Simulated assay, not measured.
Amino acid sequence: MAIKKTEEKKSEATKKEYPKKKRESIYYIGPTVKRGLLDNGSVFRGGLPKEVEKLKEKYPGIQPLFIPKDKYIEAVNKVRIQGTKFNILYENAKKDIEGR
């Protein structure tokens, strides 16, 4: 009987469901900062790489140009329309990047 109880405990332990990590996609809709690392249209899953975090510190204007998947299409369309919030953010980030 001791063997059965041990086996039951093991099977219960393997049945536990652990919460799945959310691998949310983040899209970058700003100007290219460093080709191959942070280009317009870059997609990141499961967080941003350390190098990209450093670029966000160096160019704080790009921070609001990282968009979740569900807002991507709307934001991209607004970047193209002159005078919208995203268009202004894009242009300011571009000036900041080119000025350094």
Rank of each mutant, 00 (worst) to 15 (best):
E24Y: 03
L37P: 05
A93R: 02
G30Y: 02
E51G: 15
T84Q: 04
R23K: 08
I26D: 02
Y90R: 04
R35D: 05
I29W: 04
K78W: 05
L48F: 15
N40T: 15
K54Y: 04
L65P: 04
N87S: 14
G99N: 15
V76D: 00
G61T: 15
K95E: 13
F86N: 11
R80P: 03
D70F: 11
G47R: 09
T6K: 14
G83K: 03
E74I: 05
K56V: 05
G36I: 09
S25M: 10
E17I: 10
D96P: 02
T14M: 08
K21V: 13
A93V: 05
R23T: 00
I88W: 10
T6V: 06
I67F: 02
K15C: 01
I29C: 01
Y18I: 03
P64R: 13
T84F: 09
K85T: 14
M1Q: 05
K21R: 08
G83F: 05
M1A: 12
P19D: 04
K10A: 07
V33H: 04
G46A: 15
N87E: 07
Y27M: 03
A93P: 09
K10R: 12
E53H: 10
I88K: 13
E12T: 01
P68F: 08
E91A: 06
K95C: 05
I73L: 09
K10C: 00
L37V: 15
L38Q: 04
K16V: 09
P49E: 11
K4R: 11
A75D: 00
A75I: 02
K56I: 09
K58H: 10
N87A: 08
E53T: 14
K78Y: 10
N77M: 07
L37R: 04
L65M: 10
K85Q: 15
V52S: 09
E7Y: 07
V76S: 02
R35H: 11
V79G: 00
S25E: 08
R45F: 12
E24M: 07
A13M: 03
A93E: 08
V76R: 01
K15R: 11
K20S: 06
F86V: 00
R35P: 02
S25V: 12
N77Q: 12
V33P: 04
